[in-house]
Nucleic acid binder design. Structure first.
Lengths: 236, 236
DNA sequence: ACCTGAACACCGTTCAAGT
DNA sequence: ACCTGAACACCGTTCAAGT
């Protein structure tokens, strides 16, 4: 029995590494996996080179062999998370507009779950397989809806941008007290704008800030899809 | 003559302050003014509590009497900069769509000049007079164009959001080598996507990344205005 | 009330030196 | 080639103590 156990234990390559299990080699994948882990447990704010170095039991300088900088690290985390977007509606039956909205809502839901990530997604667009699959899915649905190619090509960008920006905004408010206060200040400023100098703001009143985030998001998707579908590229 | 000069020199209130001119008292305005100064000369990245404290010849803790945190500071800088947006087209003659596009282009131009600010503008919407004036101007033009109030109320948000996000993205690429490389990676990934799995991306090819930033921006504004104008709120 | 020194708890990134 | 220690040059924010 002793013999069997002994034969199952991998012999360390170097005598000097006998004490603990050999430290697994660093790699881009291992760093990103650690980053996702830290983000889920401590938030993206803690996904720093130094924190990750600690997590991987090394020094911060070592990470620069595999990751160019902090922004690239965050982009890689986003690409990983994008795997959670439900692209099922692309191939499902039903009205194309409804299915497109469903995909975009799924995308925003993923970002909502990770507020700070949405913020970084606005600047650092990922270029990985999950992002490409999302773009392909949106394009397929616009194509099915008869949207001309040139318009779809530019429209997909706007749709994802609007979805990302909305998620970044809403979710920042969700768990940041200062952001919440800032939003209240805007609502108040809009409500108190003098009709003399701000007739349109006064005329619209509460309407400017009406609706739930979900209602607004649905309308925004509809409006951008309609605009994309109806606006020829040569118009300008 | 000696007497005259002497009488023109303001007597210091306290003997102990005689040596140098009295340090002017801190205030929100003085802090924001210093922040704008530092941003123009060193970039928003240097607009930190500590840098500003140095600039104002005090310690970082002192600033917290007037500014809640760094995000609020950046929002105040943005509000200040928004004073540069040209709202002339609002009251000028001409086609309303053209004038609306002109206002939005002016807005993005201001943000383009200060890349990092655009980024922060996506999260921290200012609530100051310059921002209100911009919202009022956009609403006035949508009203002139016969866009129903409810749609204009929600549309103004989308228009400013899309303008801000585009500025943040384009301008980040403008002066950040890493961001430039990231964009190239995306262009490459789109160009190399296999037609088998990504038929729509392959079909559109270069079209996905075609056009100058200005051309794309013009089309985006047109499309969002068209969508806002054509999409009733009860649709969803 | 306003201001501050000092401290706490962190950052990103580079580079020469090691294996 | 890969990895690292150590250093450089910074951060935001709080709090007890002073004026």
């Amino acid at each position: 029995m002793f013999v069997i156990v002994s034969s199952m234990t991998p012999r360390p390559t170097h005598e000097s590494r006998r004490e603990r299990p050999a430290k697994p080699a660093l790699s881009h994948d291992r760093i990103v996996a650690a980053a996702v882990r830290v983000m889920r447990t401590e938030g993206l704010r803690r996904v720093t080179m130094r924190r990750l170095a600690t997590e991987l039991d090394t020094g911060p300088a070592s990470l620069y062999v595999y990751v160019a900088n902090t922004a690239a690290l965050h982009a890689a985390v986003l690409e990983e998370l994008l795997g959670e977007v439900d692209l099922g509606p692309v191939a499902a039956p039903g009205e194309w507009r409804e299915r497109l909205a469903a995909v975009l809502v799924s995308y925003t839901r993923v970002l909502f779950a990770h507020p700070e990530l949405a913020h970084s997604a606005l600047v650092a667009r990922p270029a990985g397989p999950h992002y490409l699959a999302l773009v392909e899915g949106v394009l397929a649905l616009l194509h099915e809806g008869g949207v001309p190619g040139g318009q779809a090509a530019w429209g997909v960008d706007v749709l994802l941008q609007v979805a990302t920006a909305t998620a970044a905004e809403q979710s920042a408010r969700q768990d940041d007290d200062a952001a919440k206060e800032e939003h209240h200040a805007l609502v108040r400023a809009l409500a108190e704008a003098p009709p003399g100098t701000h007739p349109r703001i006064a005329a619209l009143g509460d309407d400017l800030t009406s609706g739930t985030p979900h209602q607004r998001l649905r309308w925004i998707f509809q409006a951008v899809v309609n605009g994309t579908s109806a606006t020829p590229r040569e118009a300008t």
